[in-house]
């Protein structure tokens, strides 16, 4: 392909080919501090391409291809090429990851222990993780946490933090020195802006951590904390995993172990400041 970009995010290597320079240039800038894939061999290949040759130039539309694809994936405009690249890489993880149990969750680490936050979209797990990163935690990932069936440890997957709508302003305030991507207006998900994880999170991305707390945050209610029954945690985590079934016995063993060994709480929060306070209080009580 005309333009090529390779990167390692945590323990996973990607190779991206593009018909256009634009998305590759954006990726090169934002992922500048990341290493390349181990041995120069990526785990996953993704492609951004024009479905017709003239679509490279005339009203360019970015099609998403790669090792694993969804037939119904709609093309994006070239201005949103960076988003297309990130979506394509996420898709490989969601459909193709077989080494780690993939949890649709954000994760942060302190003192070698991981806090895993999962929940429905809009629960704020991504924003919470990004905010915790600005307050002394290491960001392990804002979208996926990788549970290693062999060790029970969480591996980091610190891709670019994907901020949507109001979260963009929140993080520009909280991380004024952060490196941000271009503002992508009017994407199918609203406004999106990417934030590069801080230097320390990238430098430590190959260090796994022992899961210490599983959190199910819900935004929009008065502050409250409740325990979650282990069987409910088990069910919610199977639903939050795209590859639980594909991992077969390894997935079952990893997940039952995680549930048995890790306390879980649900928190309701009215605003992010309260959420941070609730998280810190819970963490201190472990």
């Amino acid at each position: 392909m005309r333009h090529v970009f390779s990167v390692a995010i945590g323990p996973v290597g990607f190779r991206l080919g593009s018909d256009w320079r634009g998305p590759v240039a954006a990726l090169e800038r934002l992922y500048a501090s990341y290493p390349g894939p181990q041995d120069g061999i990526a785990d996953f290949t993704v492609r951004l391409f024009a479905d017709r040759p003239w679509r490279r130039i005339f009203r360019p539309k970015v099609m998403i291809g790669g090792d694993f694809v969804l037939p119904e994936a709609a093309p994006l405009s070239l201005e949103h090429g960076l988003l297309a690249a990130e979506m394509a890489m996420n898709l490989q993880m969601a459909l193709g990851q077989r080494r780690y149990l993939l949890l649709h969750a954000s994760a942060v680490e302190r003192n070698g222990k991981a806090l895993v936050m999962t929940g429905l979209s809009g629960a704020g797990k991504s924003t919470l993780a990004a905010l915790l990163m600005t307050r002394g935690w290491r960001l392990m990932g804002d979208e996926f946490a990788l549970l290693d069936p062999a060790t029970g440890l969480i591996h980091a997957f610190p891709r670019l933090i994907s901020l949507k709508n109001e979260a963009i302003g929140v993080m520009q305030g909280a991380a004024p020195d952060g490196m941000f991507g271009p503002l992508l207006a009017d994407t199918p998900k609203g406004a999106i802006r990417h934030l590069v994880p801080d230097e320390r999170s990238v430098a430590a991305m190959l260090e796994p951590a022992r899961p210490a707390l599983i959190l199910f945050p819900t935004f929009g209610h008065d502050a409250a904390t409740r325990e979650v029954a282990p069987s409910e945690v088990f069910v919610r985590l199977t639903q939050a995993s795209t590859n639980y079934v594909a991992l077969a016995e390894r997935g079952f063993t990893a997940l039952t172990r995680l549930v048995a060994e890790t306390p879980a709480r649900a928190i309701d929060y009215p605003d992010t400041e309260s959420a941070i306070a609730q998280v810190e209080a819970l963490w201190a009580s472990l």
Partner: peptide
């Protein structure tokens, strides 16, 4: 290479 081995181990699994 180790990365190729890993890729192929995943394919086997």
């Amino acid at each position: 290479p180790a990365a190729a081995q890993r890729f192929l181990d995943d394919a086997k699994a």
